[in-house]
Design a protein around this nucleic acid. Structure first.
Lengths: 222, 222
DNA sequence: GTTTTTGCACTGACCAGTCAGTTCAAAAAC
DNA sequence: GTTTTTGAACTGACTGGTCAGTGCAAAAAC
């Protein structure tokens, strides 16, 4: 149908996909505005219910600009996912490494990562919301992106668990992937509940509640 | 806009809203088929990306039948939510009560509820998926339905925790709502990961991994 | 004979993606 | 140092298609 202009369009999409390092400062700023607009709208309404017009409007930009910067609505979304999870993964890794450097054990590392997770969710609640909402969907275009990105984050937790098992700090009977998923879930759901239903509480407060649960200090009075 | 036909539509919607007990058996069967079709499609694609035509087709029913049975697409979805969470809540409550009757303590009750949660997710993975995807969204039509329904389920866990605190089995320092949310999250995320990424594992397997985590038997070899 | 379902044509709103045209800052030409 | 050219970035009206919901007469089920 549009064979007439098919080639230019394709080239435009190719040239300007992915987290282009060669973007001008202006362009990078526009992309950032679009990420910020998209993340809150999609967190609130979901991907399909959010229109490109809305995203453009909230970013204070014309619709055409969205398509000048991203090949399509779903590409915008995929890059948003990669961007966000990159931040989270870096933060988790940093927490684990810092604890190790300070001579803490596996439990300290897990605790530090819980805090890093809470800090992240505190700062980017909309991203977290959107991530959870999309993670377990099947048959979606960005399925593979999500898998990769999920594995990056969970792998950090698994690494700490595995090391703990190796040096005898954790029981050999623990199931590393499942326990990692459960820990992530614990933090994720507790934090989302915190943000949604009792946002006035402090991060320290939430952190100490989760620490207690992690260390099995729930049963038994003290 | 549709004042011309506004009244008949409203009447039809009124007559036939909510989990009508007065429905004929035939009608109830049709509704059930529609729930089943809708739950998988929406879990896969999300609410907005799922069309009424698709739901009707998968249920093996004419589109008109959908609107004969439900006032709108979102009413169908809301009733689906209520229906599903009703099943879950009943199952959790039953587990807690059975344990209590058998003379078990709070930890046993929590453990039984973890299992009940896993059994539920094992049986209705699509519903769980869809529930998680919608729970923390804001600005949606069925927001209030979700809140009510969430509270029902979490309240069961909170009840067990509170009772444990009252009789001294659990520390008085635990934060009941937050700990309940964290426990729910632990089960939810672990189970969704199980179903999505290692579906071949047995329920018992997953259950024992979570039990261990609950009882703080992660640290310390044994 | 009443309730429920069917089949299908129809409408109007909405929306992803397109593209011809505009803007403007910096480079090139003079 | 002034004028001209260039091209990346941006704009917004427009298009082709999709979809929720309607209307209704006839058939099937009860």
């Amino acid at each position: 149908m549009n064979g007439r202009i098919g080639v230019p369009v394709t080239i435009r999409a190719m040239e300007r996909s992915s987290t282009t390092p060669g973007g001008s400062a202006r362009r990078e700023a526009t992309r950032q505005k679009l990420y910020e607009a998209a993340v809150t709208l999609i967190a609130e309404q979901g991907f399909s219910a959010t229109t490109v017009d809305e995203i453009a409007e909230r970013a204070g930009v014309a619709k055409g600009t969205v398509y000048y910067n991203f090949a399509s609505k779903s590409v915008l979304f995929e890059e948003l996912l990669r961007h966000g999870v990159g931040l989270l993964t870096a933060s988790l890794r940093e927490a684990a490494e810092r604890t190790a450097a300070e001579g803490g054990g596996g439990v300290d590392a897990l605790d530090a990562m819980i805090r890093a997770g809470l800090v992240f969710i505190d700062r980017y609640p909309a991203f977290t919301q959107l991530y959870v909402a999309e993670l377990w969907r099947t048959n979606r275009a960005w399925q593979s992106t999500l898998m990769v990105v999920r594995q990056q984050a969970v792998a950090v937790v698994e690494g700490v668990l595995r090391e703990g098992v190796a040096n005898g700090e954790f029981s050999e009977e623990i199931d590393v992937p499942l326990t990692a998923a459960a820990l992530v879930g614990m933090v994720l759901v507790a934090a989302l509940d915190w943000k949604s239903f009792q946002p006035e509480r402090s991060l320290d407060d939430v952190h100490s509640a989760l620490s207690r649960l992690l260390q099995g200090r729930v049963s038994g009075r003290r």
